[in-house]
Amino acid sequence: MNSEALLKEMREAVIQGNSDAARNLAEKGLAAGVDVNKILDEGFVKGIEHVGRLWEDGEYFLPELVRGAEAMKAALAVIEPAILAGGQDRKRLGRAVIGTIEGDIHDIGKTLVAAMMTAYGFEVTDLGADVPVTTFVEKTKETGAELVCMSALLTTTMVGQKKVVDLLRERGIPAKVIVGGAPVSQDWADEIGADGYGESAVAAVEVARSLVA
């Protein structure tokens, strides 16, 4: 199979949410000597971007989204060791801490952003949902992350995003902050002193890349 056909299959595996296929294709690609950046950027990342668009267009729903992210993770589990083994170079974009703020159990958008950021070459620490303000700040310090990404899906919880920004600044931690989630807007990001706002998962990753560029 030529590498173009292989890359297309990689995209399809993620779009179809087929973890087994994604894992096998990642192995096949590495064995065939396809450049790891190409495998990610033109294969799996394109797939997860497509999933994100289908989600935003109302064509995909939670099950398809989660399966797509799972397939992405399955591929990354194969590719990451290859990168670490030093056999191939992957551009490292930076380190990020990501989570949904305290009081909020909504996981979906955040998980998609985490999967896409990892795929693009960020080293992502996913703190999950319902993350306390202090945990965000402590993990940021501990990992030396350049980026803190916070989701909030409720107006009652989005105020927690402000607390994280305040505490980061108070402790003199220089990390940049990106906020997202249904009730969040650019105005809100400006108001609380965040560095970026992602209207969608795709946009959030774009903002993340621009902030570390």
Partner: peptide, 11 residues
């Protein structure tokens, strides 16, 4: 409300 009608989160 989605472009193709009303849907739950699970579709």
């Amino acid at each position: 409300r989605k472009p193709r009608g009303f849907f739950t989160l699970m579709g």
